[in-house]
Simulated scan of single mutants.
Amino acid sequence: MAGGQATTLLNARQFKTRAFRHICFISALALILGSIAAVPAATAQPRASQKAAATPKPGTKPAAATPRKQKSAEGARRAAEAENTHGFMIDGRKVRVDVVKAETDLLGPDGRAPAVLVLHGAHGLGDGSLFYPQAKALAEKGITAFVVHYFDGVPQVRKAAANLHDERERVLSEAISYVSKQAYVDPERIGIFGLSLGGFHALSLGSRDDRVQAVVNVVGAMPSEVQRKGVHRMPPTLVLHGDRDATVPVRRAYELANLLDGLGAEHEVKIYKGQGHTFRGDAKEDSISRTVEFFERHLGGDRGLLDKELEIDIALAPTVPETESLPIRQLTIADEAMWSQADQGSLPPTN
């Protein structure tokens, strides 16, 4: 009897021990399984500061990149009291033109005034602050200014691309024709103001279009392809550049001065110390007044009495040693690099 009780007690203890071990094993297994299940759930939750990336469905087109928002030039246009003339048509496309008319008390007896086409750079008009104030300053001195939206006439997306030079030039030639036909414009007194890409076109047009009587080039240069084909004439030309321009190096202004010297063309050059591809502060104000004064002298009624003495105002050496001059084909580096960077959005929207 005693042996039977001992056996029973032993079996009971063994049962409890085994049961305890099973319970511990099951609990541990549950904890492990719970941890494994929690890991994907935790990794699936993005951080609060991050957005979960949406996986595109097979066969769907990738979303188009959001274009950079262009600043409105409406404020600057209104401040300059520019009128939209609705422009002209080319190949079924309308090219807008904003005009700031010359002060009426400064018009000639025939009611007509000199005219200047204002050409923007590779980024378009931007907020207009680099163009409409210049147009207004010209109008206040009796010169009607035409701000030409010449990109309107280019159907391609990358409107500032180097290979579209001739396409843009064709639009600008039409713009000159449009301006010369206006009843309030003297077609014998037309000039072009161009900034950056607009400066390249102003110089190119001045070299081959006899209707252009004066050119102001701001931080641009003579296009390399035009120079390669040969430049045989240039009207009076004003060159304005910054010595820290990283987009169109100041060397290009010196190259242009040498070219104009060789042609015997009347010209003035002003290099602003410490200024880059966009003039600021006093340099900007000086460039506006200097441009107005230049066009006054070369498009005014007393052009036949002008002093033809050459004026050069360069803060740095005006010539480039022959040993440092680049081969003509390499001069495209500024043109093409500037336009390609502008297409990729890596340049600041200053022009």
Rank of each mutant, 00 (worst) to 15 (best):
H267M: 09
S207N: 03
A79T: 03
E83L: 10
H298R: 11
G262P: 08
V39T: 09
K181H: 14
A28W: 07
K270M: 13
L197I: 01
A37M: 07
Q70R: 12
V219E: 01
V116A: 07
V218G: 00
P109L: 13
S49R: 09
H241R: 10
K270N: 06
I90G: 01
A53Y: 05
S129K: 11
V320S: 00
G111L: 10
H241D: 11
G124P: 08
V148Q: 01
L347W: 03
V231Q: 10
H123A: 15
S287E: 14
G301E: 15
K71R: 08
A315W: 01
L256C: 02
S204N: 05
A48F: 05
C24A: 12
F15L: 13
L106D: 10
E103W: 04
D245S: 08
K16W: 14
P133G: 04
L197D: 02
A135K: 00
T332V: 05
A80I: 02
E81N: 14
G128C: 11
S27H: 07
E225P: 03
A221F: 02
V215P: 00
K273Y: 12
A175E: 00
A48T: 05
R93K: 14
D152Y: 09
Y272V: 09
A139C: 08
G111F: 04
G262T: 11
R329P: 00
V219Q: 11
H22T: 13
M338T: 05
K101Q: 03
A214S: 06
F294P: 07
Q50M: 10
D286Y: 14
T319G: 02
H267E: 03
D243I: 12
A135N: 01
T85R: 00
T55L: 13
A161Q: 14
A145Q: 00
V39P: 06
H232D: 15
R21T: 11
D91H: 15
A145P: 04
D186Q: 02
D286C: 13
L29G: 09
K273F: 15
V39K: 12
L203A: 04
A122M: 10
I26H: 05
L205V: 04
R297Y: 06
G230R: 11
D335F: 01
G301M: 08
P67F: 07
H123W: 03
G92A: 08
V219G: 03
A53F: 05
R112F: 06
E74N: 13
I312K: 09
R211K: 14
R168N: 11
S196K: 00
Q275V: 10
K94P: 00
